[in-house]
């Protein structure tokens, strides 16, 4: 669980900008991803070797998820989906470091990501059908269904964010309980499960659900 803000700034005796663990670990992971990306993509060659193979493997894995669901638009959506995928995956993995809580174990992070996906979904739907055509598509097949469709659309970012948040927090709570019962040796395989396996699967699912929402809005 998140213990709340650790650092607080004061201006005119009023508290503002509380800095939580999530914020610090989130920015550290952003900087680490930036360094890693710079390192992996420096000195690119036509015949890939060494580190370039790793970079191409990651990008192709993500591309292969996008292309079947959004035909012919894989390269257009790759930067957006890959950003989400790599950031969520890296944030989940950083929980492997003892004493560090995953930024994705905080609803603020996941809800922020889900809202970005929500806005992109709406813009893509409007781009495909036109603004009026997209709004009208909520009232189909009968006008009667309009409130249900709107509520269904608004529920998407909520279920999208709570899925990732619940998985990571649930794993974190179980790990805390295990650490209290058996501080040594026993948590190692459980870390591999909760942080590595579940973290990777959840990052993949978070990205894939985003692709699925975009492809639903465009159809």
């Amino acid at each position: 669980m998140n213990p709340g803000p650790q650092i607080k700034f004061y201006l005119f005796n009023k508290e503002y900008l509380p800095v939580t663990d999530t914020l610090i670990v989130g920015w550290v992971s952003v900087i680490l991803i930036l360094i890693l990306a710079k390192y992996l993509t420096s000195n690119l060659k036509m015949r890939p070797e060494g580190k370039q193979n790793v970079a191409e493997m990651i990008i192709e894995l993500i591309y292969d998820q996008i292309e079947p669901m959004l035909p012919n638009e894989g390269w257009r959506f790759l930067p957006f989906i890959a950003t989400i995928f790599i950031y969520v995956g890296f944030s989940n993995l950083i929980g492997l470091v003892p004493g560090v809580t995953s930024p994705t174990g905080d609803l603020n992070t996941t809800l922020g990501l889900a809202l970005v996906v929500f806005i992109v979904v709406q813009l893509e739907g409007m781009r495909e059908h036109g603004v009026w055509g997209y709004i009208k598509s909520f009232a189909e097949p009968v006008i009667f269904l309009l409130p249900i469709n709107v509520i269904g659309e608004l529920a998407k970012p909520i279920s999208h964010s709570f899925r990732l948040f619940g998985n990571i927090v649930g794993g974190g709570i179980i790990m805390t309980l295990i650490y209290q019962a058996a501080p040594a040796l026993v948590p190692v395989p459980l870390h591999a499960w909760f942080d590595f396996f579940v973290g990777m699967i959840q990052a993949l699912i978070f990205g894939m659900v985003a692709i699925a929402y975009i492809s639903v809005a465009k159809s």
Binding site: R163, F165, G166, N167, V169, G170, I201, L204, A212
Partner: peptide, 19 residues
């Protein structure tokens, strides 16, 4: 891939109860 996507959606209700 399809199985994982379906399972993720099926999982939602469990996650709501956990929250």
């Amino acid at each position: 891939t399809t199985m994982l996507l379906g399972q993720a959606v099926a999982e939602s209700t469990g996650i709501y109860s956990l929250v």
